[in-house]
Computed example of a mutant assay.
Amino acid sequence: MAQAFLMMMMIATSSINFAEAFKEEGGMGGVIHVGGKVLCQDCSQGWNEWVHGAKPIKGCKVSITCMDERKRVIYYGSDQTDEAGDYEMTLNKYINGGKELDPNKCSVRLVSSPDPVCNIATDFASGRSGVKLRRPTVVYRDFIKHVLSPFYYTTPMCDEPDAATTTTHSSSSSYAKQTKY
């Protein structure tokens, strides 16, 4: 009976040590999960299809960039979407020899789309400019996950030109023409 008790104590102690080591080495306690979906919106459809009929894109690249206090990149990672348009990135909370990563200084954005028709990144849900990680969506014990709103690509025919860029460009070229004389 004493041997069984001693064996149980050894197993319990080794389990606790394993769990602590796992946590310190970037296990569940040291990991941040980021996930979401990438869809294609086609503006050539009717309004209802455009809003509710977005289709997932397989193979889109989505990236995450994390900065430090001095606004230097300390982490960059990316993932590609699956058949359902879903991506899932996992990053260690502790990098560079134990320095803790601040998720509030991380930004997720669209990078590229393999779809030859639907390949213009939109800024719906800040997909083109990047969305900052704020509050986690799921927190359960040591599990932390940020589930982001869907990002969207669209077709070139749906892309609206940026009026500020066009105005700036045309005014600078007219300025160049005036300075030649």
Results as ranks from 00 to 15, higher is better:
93 K>I: 07
141 R>P: 00
164 A>N: 10
135 R>C: 01
66 C>W: 04
104 N>L: 08
171 S>K: 10
108 V>K: 04
27 G>H: 10
15 S>C: 13
52 H>P: 00
6 L>N: 05
57 I>E: 04
88 E>Y: 15
7 M>V: 08
143 F>A: 05
127 G>Q: 08
13 T>F: 11
128 R>I: 03
94 Y>G: 05
115 D>N: 12
50 W>G: 00
160 E>R: 00
105 K>C: 07
56 P>L: 03
137 T>F: 04
18 F>T: 08
26 G>T: 02
103 P>G: 01
21 A>Y: 15
70 R>P: 01
46 G>Y: 01
123 D>N: 15
140 Y>T: 11
57 I>K: 04
90 T>Y: 13
165 T>S: 12
147 V>A: 09
1 M>I: 09
17 N>D: 12
9 M>L: 15
2 A>G: 10
17 N>F: 14
126 S>T: 07
101 L>Q: 12
145 K>T: 04
69 E>L: 15
132 K>W: 11
72 R>P: 02
92 N>Y: 08
107 S>I: 14
60 C>K: 03
60 C>I: 02
35 G>R: 11
141 R>T: 05
81 T>S: 09
27 G>M: 08
161 P>H: 05
155 T>M: 05
92 N>C: 04
162 D>K: 07
85 G>E: 07
77 G>W: 01
50 W>Y: 12
116 P>A: 07
66 C>N: 06
163 A>C: 03
158 C>T: 01
102 D>R: 13
108 V>A: 05
103 P>I: 05
55 K>T: 14
63 S>W: 02
169 H>C: 12
61 K>T: 15
104 N>Y: 08
101 L>A: 08
54 A>M: 04
11 I>H: 03
139 V>R: 14
166 T>Q: 11
55 K>N: 11
19 A>S: 13
35 G>K: 10
1 M>W: 08
17 N>V: 09
157 M>E: 03
146 H>P: 01
150 P>A: 12
70 R>N: 14
26 G>C: 06
30 G>D: 05
14 S>F: 09
151 F>Q: 10
31 V>Y: 06
2 A>H: 07
50 W>E: 01
102 D>E: 14
18 F>C: 11
21 A>L: 15
128 R>A: 07
29 G>I: 02
146 H>W: 15
177 K>N: 09
98 G>T: 08
167 T>A: 14
101 L>T: 03
51 V>I: 10
94 Y>K: 12
20 E>C: 11
10 M>D: 03
34 V>W: 00
41 Q>T: 00
170 S>D: 15
49 E>P: 00
38 V>E: 09
37 K>S: 13
14 S>W: 05
134 R>I: 13
72 R>E: 09
114 P>S: 02
29 G>Y: 02
104 N>P: 01
14 S>Q: 09
172 S>E: 13
66 C>I: 01
123 D>F: 01
4 A>S: 13
38 V>I: 08
121 A>Q: 07
62 V>K: 07
43 C>W: 01
171 S>Q: 14
177 K>M: 07
14 S>M: 09
115 D>L: 06
74 I>S: 13
35 G>Q: 14
120 I>A: 06
123 D>M: 06
60 C>Q: 10
161 P>K: 00
149 S>M: 14
172 S>K: 11
